[in-house]
Structures are given as structure tokens and as C-alpha cells.
């Protein structure tokens, strides 16, 4: 589980703090606009399912992941913050995805 969280990380944290300041309010606003555009694209897609064919669901999921990660990495600062926070969060996230995915697979949910 969580290993290697030695005092060394302290200096990293300080370093990262400095990094964080590079993101101005303007950058956040730009990101939010980008997210809004991605959402708009998603919605547009849902009205043109026929056009996308078999790509529809993969592309939609991809866009979802992009939005998800953008919020996690930038709005939640995970990209700049200490690695330990990432470990804690991704542990839960990945565990949830893998475990529930397997559970749904055993229902042969994806066959239908």
C-alpha cells in the first residue's frame, strides 16, 4: 500500500506549492470553457448517434474520462499536489473500477 512517503516529500511539497501558483484564475476559466465545450460535444453526439456508429460509446466514454481527469488534475490540484494524495485517491478509484467491472462481467452484463 502506501510506501515511500519519506520526509523527503516535504521539500517536494514546497516545490509543488510554488508550481501551483502558475495557474492563474484565467487558466482555470479557460479550462472551464474547454470542459463546457467538451460537454457540448457530448450532447451533440447524443443527438447524432447514427453518425458515430460503433464509435459512439467509446468516444463518449473517452470524453467523460477527459472531463473527469481534467477536474481531478487541475481543479482538485492533484497534478501539482503531493503524490501521496494521488495514491490515496487513485487507489480507491482504480479499485472501484476494477472490482465493479469484474462483478458486472460475472453477470454477463456486457453480452446483452
Amino acid at each position: 500500500m502506501a510506501t515511500d512517503t519519506q520526509p523527503a516529500t516535504h521539500s517536494d511539497a514546497a516545490h509543488d506549492d510554488a508550481h501551483e501558483e502558475h495557474w492563474s484564475d484565467l487558466s482555470y476559466i479557460k479550462l472551464a470553457i474547454a470542459l463546457a465545450l467538451v460537454t457540448a460535444l457530448e450532447i451533440a453526439m447524443s443527438y447524432t448517434i447514427g453518425f458515430w456508429g460503433p464509435l459512439f460509446i467509446p468516444v463518449l466514454l473517452l470524453l467523460m474520462v477527459v472531463k473527469f481527469m481534467a477536474v481531478v488534475l487541475f481543479f482538485m490540484h492533484l497534478k501539482f499536489d503531493n503524490r501521496l494524495f494521488s495514491i490515496m485517491f487513485y487507489m480507491g478509484l482504480i479499485l472501484a473500477i476494477v472490482v465493479y467491472f469484474i462483478a458486472l462481467l460475472t453477470f454477463r452484463f456486457f453480452d446483452a
Partner: peptide, 10 residues
Amino acid sequence: LGSECLLFGG
């Protein structure tokens, strides 16, 4: 929040 992932996952 890591823990909540499993809640919403379920």
C-alpha cells in the same frame, strides 16, 4: 474521497 469512489461505484 477514495472511499467514496467505492460507494458511488456500487
